[in-house]
Every structure is written in structure tokens, then in C-alpha cells.
Simulated scan of single mutants.
Amino acid sequence: MTTPTALGIDEARTRLHELTVIDVRTPGEYAGGHLPGALNIPLDQIRRALPDIRQAAARGDVLVVCASGARSENACRTLAAHGVASATLSGGTAAWAAEGNELQRPEGASRATWSMERQVRFTAGTLVLVGLLLGFLVHPAFLLVSAVIAGGLVFSALTDTCGMAAMLARLPHNRPRSADLGAPPAPLRDR
């Protein structure tokens, strides 16, 4: 597979007004801060939004963003497989914010929303710690919990996938309300 085209932060900033920006993070992450004007279409909803993304791509360039670039690369590959050209933002929203660029938040959104990476680190660390404590205090078999989590993290790094992130994305605070699922494609039609 080829690596999708990446736009640098400076180029994206100067072209932001002419791009259709699609943020493929979870709704919780999106609410924590996104590029100005970005539309939230979570990675697992990209295929469903394909007709509207195709229309937006016919009118101009599509920039796909996530926290660091991994999910946006996956989304770009999915779009390319369906004939839609798109680019990713080098370094994602983390790099965008690190260079002092504005992040928008929906009205009433909490700034305390954790990124998916932070949620994974917290969950993995907690499970490893619990496995160790229970393994030493209750029964050595609980050490397997820590071993399984460690193995999962190694597998995640080698394959650039994350099963724990996929599970955490299903939690209520990371899911859109049912009324929101139909909302993202509509603004695409107006761009």
C-alpha cells in the first residue's frame, strides 16, 4: 500500500479556506478540539459517508485529519480504494496545536476530553497495574492479565492497529449520539 499524500502544517493553514477538512477521530476527541471548520466523520463511518465525501472531493481538495496521522492515513487509503483523492495533515491535530494554531471546540464542550491515545495508555497502564497487584497479592495467575496487555501493546506497535482503541471508541463518551450520525454528511453537500 502506498502512503497517502501529506500536507504540512503551513500549507494546510494557508489553504484551510479551500479545503474540505474531515476529522476521523471519535466524537469525544473531536469535541476536545479540532481544526477550524473540520467535519467529524469517525473512521468507522467513512464508508457510510462516501457518497457525500465524493461530492465534496469533486468540488475541491479533501484533507483528512486525526490526532497524529495514523487514522487519517487509514481513512485516505479507504477513500482511495473508492476513487476519492485525499491528503492527510502531517502530524495531525497534535502538530497543528503544537505550532500554535487554533483548535475549535463545539459550544459547551469540555476541554477535559482525553485523546484516544491517552485513553489507551491509561487503560493499558491500569490493567497492567491491577494484574501485577492481584498477581502478587491474590494469585499468580493474575499476572497473565499484565502479560496479555503487554503482548497486545507489542502487537499494536508492530501492526499499527489498536484493538484497545477500537473497544474504547465504543464507550458512550466516544460515540456520537444517534442523531449526530446522520449530521456530518449534510455539511459536505454545502461546501
Rank of each mutant, 00 (worst) to 15 (best):
T3A: 14
T5I: 11
A6N: 11
L7N: 06
G8P: 06
L16E: 10
H17M: 02
T20Q: 11
D23E: 13
V24Q: 01
R25S: 10
P27H: 01
E29Q: 05
I41A: 09
P42Q: 08
P51F: 13
I53Y: 11
Q55V: 08
R59E: 07
G60Q: 02
G60C: 09
L63S: 13
C66K: 08
C66Q: 08
G69L: 08
R71C: 08
A80M: 05
H82P: 07
H82A: 15
V84D: 03
A85P: 04
S86Y: 07
A87S: 15
G91M: 13
G100P: 12
P106Y: 00
G108Q: 10
R111K: 04
A112G: 02
W114G: 09
S115D: 12
R121V: 05
F122G: 05
T123H: 00
T126F: 07
L129S: 12
G135Y: 09
F136C: 04
P140W: 13
A141P: 01
S146L: 07
A147Y: 04
A147G: 13
V148C: 06
A150E: 10
L153P: 04
F155G: 02
S156H: 08
D160S: 14
M167Y: 03
L168R: 03
P172T: 09
H173R: 14
R175H: 00
R175L: 09
D180S: 13
D180F: 00
P184L: 11
P185N: 14
A186Y: 02
L188A: 09
R191D: 05
